[in-house]
Design a protein around this nucleic acid. Structure first.
Length: 270
DNA sequence: AATGTCCCCAACCGCCGCAGC
DNA sequence: GGCTGCGGCGGTTGGGGACAT
């Protein structure tokens, strides 16, 4: 078993190992994303002066640094939600995380293994929940022509609401479109947009389970809460980062006609 | 006080799907 | 259709705090 790590002079390492993120690294990453947004995880470490891999930066941001992340204990409701959705979805932690805004898949996965695993096995209350979910899914499914299974319906990666003119699956409601203008994201897979997508998909799931009226569904989507990154994309004093090149930004953001790159301020403006 | 053990959780790893070329 | 690069996901590892001996 692991012993307490000590330095050569016998002092404890104050919780910092070689691979742990230091406050300085966190600050660098946060400051960089705050200034330039998320444009390419692989190139971000070099541009921001970090010696981490892009994946590591992404993980750190997604699990720890992003402003909407919720820290601290899981509430009883959170625990029940995890238990129930785990019964239904299995180890699809990202899907379960989508049901708990502010919680990362990694955190939920850890919490499950640490606290809920045993409980989950003997949790009987979820049986009713699952029955209800499956039943509702089947009812919705019965209103559709295609024959995909209820699991597919619940976990679909593509929106099933008609007339969605969004960017790669994101509906262009005024709210969400505005947020994507602010978000400096290069593709549908970059976290900020993905967050919006996830938020959309979460509620899409819920909508699938709670309503079969298309107009109600669409109305609900437009009223979805969305996560705004505005606060972290405000310009700040230049910390000496390497900015993404305008050419690259032009290439990656030409899909957003209302957005342009302000070379003078190195920031996106409408 | 020193040593051993348990266990949480941050971080890593490898695989996969997707998009662009 | 194949290749490449990228991001996302789930499984696993190991650092280190808390507690026991």
């Amino acid at each position: 078993m692991m012993m307490m790590k000590k330095t050569s002079d016998g002092e404890k390492m104050h919780g910092r190992s070689r691979t742990s993120w230091s406050p300085e690294e966190d600050q660098k990453l946060k400051a960089y994303i705050k200034r330039y947004g998320i444009w390419n995880w692989n190139q971000m470490p070099e541009a921001s002066g970090l010696t981490r891999s892009g994946k590591s930066c992404r993980l750190r941001w997604m699990n720890y640094l992003r402003p909407d992340i919720k820290r601290g204990n899981f509430s009883h409701e959170d625990q029940e939600t995890i238990l129930k959705w785990h019964e239904l979805l299995g180890n699809r932690w990202s899907a379960i995380a989508a049901k708990l805004p502010g919680r990362s898949d990694n955190e939920i996965k850890n919490y499950w293994h640490a606290h809920l695993k045993k409980r989950g096995k003997k949790n009987s209350s979820s049986t009713t929940f699952i029955s209800e979910m499956v039943k509702t899914s089947e009812e919705v499914e019965a209103n559709k022509n295609d024959s995909s299974g209820s699991q597919d319906l619940l976990l679909s990666d593509s929106p099933k609401v008609p007339n969605m003119d969004g960017i790669k699956g994101i509906p262009t409601s005024p709210q969400i479109y505005m947020s994507t203008n602010v978000i400096s994201s290069s593709s549908s897979t970059d976290p900020p947009v993905e967050d919006v997508r996830n938020q959309y998909m979460i509620d899409q799931d819920e909508i699938n389970c709670s309503s079969s009226n298309p107009s109600e569904i669409i109305q609900s989507i437009w009223e979805l809460p969305y996560f705004s990154f505005q606060e972290i994309f405000m310009p700040e004093t230049d910390p000496g980062f390497m900015a993404p090149t305008p050419a690259r930004w032009h290439q990656e953001y030409s899909m957003y006609p209302d957005v342009c790159y302000d070379a003078g301020h190195e920031f996106w403006v409408n």
